[in-house]
């Protein structure tokens, strides 16, 4: 087990060091993040006619901070490794070489992806903090100590999201292009969990969303940072672990099925 972990840690470290060379390129992505947050600050400033208003239990500051945090996770954890690279490996036949290497292909991709966001996400977190504090002021009621519980939730949320996206990419074993399915998954996460907290939706839908990855990927971590409670934290962590186990099982299942299909077709 420790030998196996060591193998993936080496992959993780090498990608991490490689990505340190591209910090300037990562920083160029700040432009899009800044503009997206700027648009949402303007939008919520317009909708909250009175700064003291509450919408779905959120003050204006909390609502803007919520969007900034979810967008931070969205931008900080995006990478083509779990989407385009997997699809092109499968479509181009490169998978035939990679599956013979002394690692499991899907875990190799996850280790590589983790190495990428380990640089990106903290950079975006720093930018989000600076932007938030200067443009909307500090988050009301925020205690830095709660980050000790919120940060693991963010990390688990990013990993759960990666596992599900990887499952979708693995569909390339059967269909030529899995990108359209990624768009739909991304839009569900974006519209129903990133742009608004789920409390803003009607009650019946809120219950439904709690059963989907939306709850674990973006809503949960952002909610904990904006409005921390120990019970909520325990609930979100438990849901994330359940989703991670289910996602990993699904990922190994799809990969196993896909690889057999590859064998039948002769690669």
């Amino acid at each position: 087990m420790s030998r196996m972990l060591k193998k993936y840690t080496v992959i993780y470290k090498s990608v991490l060091i490689e990505n340190l060379q591209y910090m300037f390129n990562i920083a160029m992505g700040f432009i899009s993040y800044f503009i997206m947050c700027f648009v949402f600050i303007k939008l919520w400033n317009y909708i909250y006619a009175d700064p003291g208003d509450l919408i779905a239990g959120y003050t204006k500051e909390q609502m803007i901070w919520y969007v900034m945090i979810t967008e931070m996770v969205w931008f900080g954890a995006r990478s083509s490794t779990i989407t385009r690279q997997v699809s092109s490996d499968i479509r181009g036949g490169n998978i035939a070489y990679l599956m013979n290497k002394p690692y499991h292909y899907t875990l190799y991709i996850l280790a590589k992806y983790t190495g990428e966001w380990s640089i990106q996400l903290p950079m975006y977190a720093l930018l989000a903090t600076v932007m938030g504090v200067t443009m909307i002021g500090s988050l009301p009621g925020f205690r830095p100590v709660t980050l000790l519980a919120s940060v693991p939730c963010v990390i688990l949320g990013v990993t759960v999201n990666a596992v599900f996206k990887l499952c979708i990419s693995l569909l390339s074993f059967w269909i030529e292009d899995s990108a359209p399915f990624q768009w739909i998954y991304d839009k569900l996460i974006l519209v129903m969990g990133t742009l608004f907290p789920i409390e803003i939706f009607p009650g019946a839908l809120q219950f439904l969303f709690k059963l989907t990855p939306i709850y674990t990927v973006c809503y949960g971590p952002a909610k904990l940072i904006v409005d921390f409670s120990a019970e909520k934290c325990a609930e979100i962590l438990l849901t994330q672990l359940l989703y991670l186990c289910a996602g990993l099982l699904l990922m190994f299942f799809i990969y196993g099925k896909g690889v057999r299909k590859l064998y039948v077709n002769g690669g």
């Binding site: 939008l43 317009y46 909708i47 006619a49 919408i55 269909i175 030529e176 292009d177 990108a179 359209p180 399915f181 768009w183 739909i184 839009k187 569900l188 974006l190 519209v191 129903m192 742009l195 608004f196 803003i200 939706f201």
Partner: peptide, 30 residues
Amino acid sequence: NKVTFLTNILFMMLNNGAFIIQWLILFRLK
């Protein structure tokens, strides 16, 4: 590849359509 071609077009339309939900929610508020 006709299936991929059509899937790309239809799913992009669905993808854009998802934002109608965003605006329905916002117009419920104002």
